[in-house]
Nucleic acid binder design. Structure first.
Length: 906
RNA sequence: GCGCUCAUAGCUCAGUGGUAGAGCGUUUGCAUGACACGCAAAAGGUCCGAGGUUCGAUCCCUCGUGGGCGCACCA
């Protein structure tokens, strides 16, 4: 044995041994007699790391703490499960991948299209996943890999859909138009919690608004402001009555303003007068709600001004602002400018842009609506009683059914719940769970999670030279040109993923060719249908559009205008008849309909229940573009049977909120669910108490009528040696893998445990890690010494009083450590052990044993040997949860049975 | 503005209603048959300030000072 312990040589080998032993899996522990069948359970789900990259020191701390708990409980004989997994982290991952692609290829997600973009994200997520699971192993985490889960895998997706449906049925999920946080950069809504306020210095303008002076930092929102609000108690504006109308000159000319009195106004701020923009401000929105005021959209989804802005319309707000100020100045409406104004602007914390509030139709979770809690396991709430999500969330913590460690975070928790508004759960990003709602194509009625009988695709043929040349090609035959062929191939490629059974195609050449390409890719049979032929243009066949237009007038009319031709009306009749007929006979098959631009327009008109005008004002779809429809049971409202799924995805926290039970097999009532839920502890950083902890409580309360966990243990943030947050921009990030490489996982773990209390941030320096690396070496060498002096003999040991005292002290240490561990005080547990092993065992007990080990008095010698071995064994066992690798390695070299240390009795 | 939190040795941090602790660092000895990633010693603190409760406060309470964090507002 070497005088230096080499973690690099040891750790991977030992982790492999653990994995192969199967003892990470509680079922194996029971089967192999390590755990009793009827033992109590101890379960933790690993807070799933985001697949946005690799693990940082915070994750390392989390893994260290959880592994201590888990190893301790396992050694104490509990049926112990630590369930690992990863989180798709929808918006964060998408944002990250979008950034990478843009940087590398200069392309946006729209350039790639939904399918290709998602493929790229999945690829990235896979790499992250592999890096993460490798790191989790390197840390020595005793997680049960056989149960590993991903928030976006099939089982978890099923849980998400089931959850959505139940909450929808309970009336807790609703769709409504409300003001939301819109991120123009990522083109999506974000939840209130994901909005991060950043300080900004901006000029503050005082504007003349009739007899009033109003202040604003955002003149570009002011176009539509026609309400002027003052506090009802403000004496300065006493002479203006509520609802009084005033005519005044504004940015783009004279307007009529209405005076509103509302307490939301802060009399002390600025002039105490404000105008409101309900469409783009939460407070203004609420004022408008209270007084039933008009709302008007000023800024579009891209941050550009709408037509209300007059000549500024179409301009980005950033560009428009100085011009608008200039205009105001020219009109004499600018009273003064304050350049020292500092305010907070809302940004999307997940790598997005500056938030522009918008009123949008979105899906929400209603936190104030009562629902019936059917089978309640919540203290103080009877089965069958009614409760709101907010009330339930408060109750479980107030009643101590869930204990938060450290206690002070309860206050933070309650505060958050009190301020909680309905949770916007729909996102316009692509990576995530599609919202499981379909809309009837004809009337828009929503249906949650319907049984889809089949998929129907309407696809236009690929390009021909006639298309390209803007020629009237109705019945005129033409074949695909080169780009038409490649368009068709691309379309066929995507259709491959949909198990196409049948292709119904127009029998004209351009469609036949397209259909054949699709058939080749999908293996589906083709049926030709004459009724799907393109509109007959009669005399005008072969003419340029412009020529025909001159000669016959409107060539796009509903009624036929060209001699010998069909109008759209005629096409609609035959095409719809054919479509309906095929739909009836092939409703159980996935069908691709290949036809022409004009035919698709008329079919879409029928399917979507449009009027003629709407059809005519909607342009033809592009060559080889497809419309995807789902066929399901008849719509309750209009009897239609074609549906489209909502294109939005769910907030990532919707799926992670189910984590404690979706990982255990819910909605199936599995053995795992019965055994391990509610979980014993959730251990996480205090920074995600709202995002995650609170939402798990919310979801579990509604879906299971229970709590997700008994205890919440929150660790602090890991900071650098001078207390700064570790971040890329500061360049002070310490990679856990580097530390492990240099000093070993044991040392890395201990340095994250000792000297840090629950909920308090910890500072980490390499010096500290080095110190604990030295401790590993100490254990190694002390063990070496005990071993090389341990020669079992037949002589009966004769123990001294000191020996007995030492053994007694060992027992006391054990009790103290256990007490600390059970109080989640890992810091002290580890410190006590550290101190005991080094300064009591190694420095005192071993030192004083040295002469006895060389003694001629054999029974005294034997006693010394036995005492040293006993203490060593016990110490190594106690230390194992903290520094599993060295202890396991030492254990394997001790005499006696060769059981694995992680499965020993503590 | 509301709330939380921290202030103890040079540094990083534990801690307790009764004479102050650890690691690292510093100083001084030691190549002592486990270990120099070590051993043996040592120096080093008005426990942020003021007041209060108490027989007694570093600890409990109040106020203050200075850091950190969260939430809300920001027209």
């Amino acid at each position: 044995m070497d005088t230096r312990y080499d973690p690099k040589e040891t750790e991977d080998r030992i982790y492999k041994r653990w994995e192969e032993s199967g003892f990470f899996n509680p079922d194996v522990c029971v089967k192999r007699g390590v755990t009793k069948k009827n033992a109590k359970h101890f379960s933790i789900v690993l807070p799933p790391p985001n697949v946005t990259g690799t693990l940082h020191m915070g994750h390392a701390a989390m893994l260290a703490i959880e592994d201590i708990m888990v190893r301790y409980e396992r050694m104490k004989g509990k049926k112990t499960l630590w369930l690992p997994g990863t989180d798709h982290a929808a918006i964060a991952t998408q944002s990250k991948v979008e950034g990478i692609i843009y940087k590398k290829e200069g392309k946006t997600r729209y350039d790639l299209g939904r399918e290709e973009f998602l493929r790229r994200v999945e690829e990235f997520a896979k790499e992250s996943h592999d890096a993460i699971t490798n790191q989790v192993r390197k840390m020595g985490s005793s997680v049960d890999w056989s149960r590993e889960a991903y928030t976006l895998d099939a089982k978890r997706s099923r849980a998400v859909v089931t959850a959505f449906q139940k909450m929808y049925d309970d009336g807790l999920i609703y769709r409504g138009a409300r003001i939301v946080n819109w991120d123009p950069k990522m083109q999506t809504t974000v939840s209130d919690d994901e909005v991060e306020r950043v300080e900004e210095k901006a000029p503050f303008y005082y504007l003349k608004y009739g007899p009033f002076t109003i202040g604003t930092a955002r003149p570009e929102t002011k176009f539509g402001d026609k309400y002027v609000v003052v506090h009802p108690a403000d004496k300065r504006y006493k002479k203006y009555k509520h609802a009084e109308k005033l005519n005044l000159e504004w940015i783009n000319g004279p307007i009529t303003a209405t005076v509103i009195k509302d307490k939301a106004v802060d009399m002390g701020f600025g002039t105490g007068v404000m105008t409101i923009t309900p469409w783009h401000d939460t407070v203004d929105f609420e004022i408008a709600e209270r007084h039933k005021l008009d709302r008007e959209q000023i800024i579009d989804n891209n941050g550009k001004l709408l037509s209300i802005a007059g000549e500024f319309a179409g301009m980005h707000i950033k560009k428009a602002r100085p011009l608008i100020v200039q205009r105001l100045q020219e009109k004499g409406l600018l009273a003064k400018t304050d350049d020292s104004y500092v305010h907070n602007i809302a940004t999307n914390s997940r790598g997005g842009g500056i938030i522009e509030p918008q009123i949008k139709e979105q899906w929400f979770v209603d936190v104030n609506k009562k629902f019936v809690i059917k089978k309640s396991k919540i203290k103080g709430v009877k089965s069958g009683s009614k409760i709101t999500l907010k009330e339930m969330m408060k109750k479980v913590v107030a009643s101590k059914q869930i204990e938060i460690i450290p206690r002070r975070f309860e206050k933070t928790y309650f505060r958050w719940i009190n301020n909680l508004r309905d949770w916007c759960i729909s996102r316009q990003i692509w990576y995530g769970h599609r919202i499981p709602v379909w809309y009837c194509v004809a009337c828009g009625t929503p249906i949650v999670n319907p049984v889809i009988k089949s998929k129907w695709f309407l696809i236009r043929h690929g390009e021909t030279d006639h298309n390209k040349g803007e020629r009237m090609a109705g019945r005129l035959e033409a074949s695909l040109n080169e780009s038409g062929i490649s368009q068709a191939r691309k379309a066929a490629d995507e259709l491959k993923n949909h198990n196409i059974d049948l292709i119904i195609s127009s029998d004209m050449m351009r469609c036949r060719q397209t259909a054949e390409i699709i058939a080749k890719a999908t293996g589906a049979e083709i049926v030709y249908e004459k009724q799907l032929r393109e509109q007959n243009h009669g005399e005008a066949e072969g003419m340029l559009r412009t020529e025909a237009f001159e000669k016959y007038g409107d060539t796009y009319s509903y009624e036929a205008t060209i001699p010998g031709s069909e109008g759209y009306k005629d096409v609609e009749e035959r095409a719809w008849k054919a479509f309906s007929h095929h739909k009836k006979s092939h409703h159980h098959r996935n069908v691709v309909i290949v036809t022409h631009g004009g035919v698709i327009r008329t079919l879409v008109k029928r399917i979507r229940n449009w009027d003629v005008e709407q059809m005519l004002s909607t342009p033809s779809i592009k060559n080889a573009a497809a419309i995807e429809l789902d066929l399901a049971s008849q719509c309750v409202k209009c009897k239609g049977d074609l549906y489209e799924q909502d294109t939005d995805t769910l907030d990532t926290w919707f799926s992670s909120g189910l984590w404690t039970f979706s990982t255990l097999g819910w909605p199936e009532n599995t053995d795992d669910l019965k055994t391990f839920h509610p979980t014993s502890v959730i251990e996480t950083g205090y920074d995600i108490i709202f995002f995650w902890v609170a939402r798990m409580i919310l979801m579990t309360g509604n879906l299971l009528g229970d709590v997700p966990f008994r205890k919440v243990y929150m660790h602090g943030l890991v900071r650098d040696a001078s207390g700064r947050k570790m971040s890329k921009s500061l360049g002070n990030i310490i990679d856990p893998l580097d530390l492990i490489e240099k000093y070993g996982a044991d040392a890395t773990r201990l340095s994250l445990i000792i000297g840090s209390a629950a909920g308090n941030d910890m500072k980490l320096s390499e010096d500290k890690v080095r110190g604990y690396r030295n401790f590993s070496t100490k254990i190694w060498n002390a063990s070496r010494f005990v071993l090389m002096n341990y020669k079992p003999s037949k002589v009966k040991p004769k123990f001294t009083a000191k020996d007995k005292k030492n053994i007694e002290e060992l027992g006391k240490i054990k009790k103290r450590v256990a007490k600390y561990l059970e109080a989640f005080d890992f810091n002290h547990a580890a410190e006590v052990l550290y101190h005991y092993f080094w300064h009591t065992f190694a420095d005192k007990i071993i030192e004083s044993a040295k002469p006895r080990l060389n003694s001629e008095n054999l029974s005294d010698k034997a006693a010394a040997q036995v005492v040293l071995m006993t203490i060593l064994k016990e110490s190594v066992k106690m230390l194992h949860p903290f520094i599993p690798f060295v202890t396991e390695e030492v254990w394997s070299r001790l005499p006696g049975d060769k059981k694995i240390l992680m499965a020993e009795k503590w």
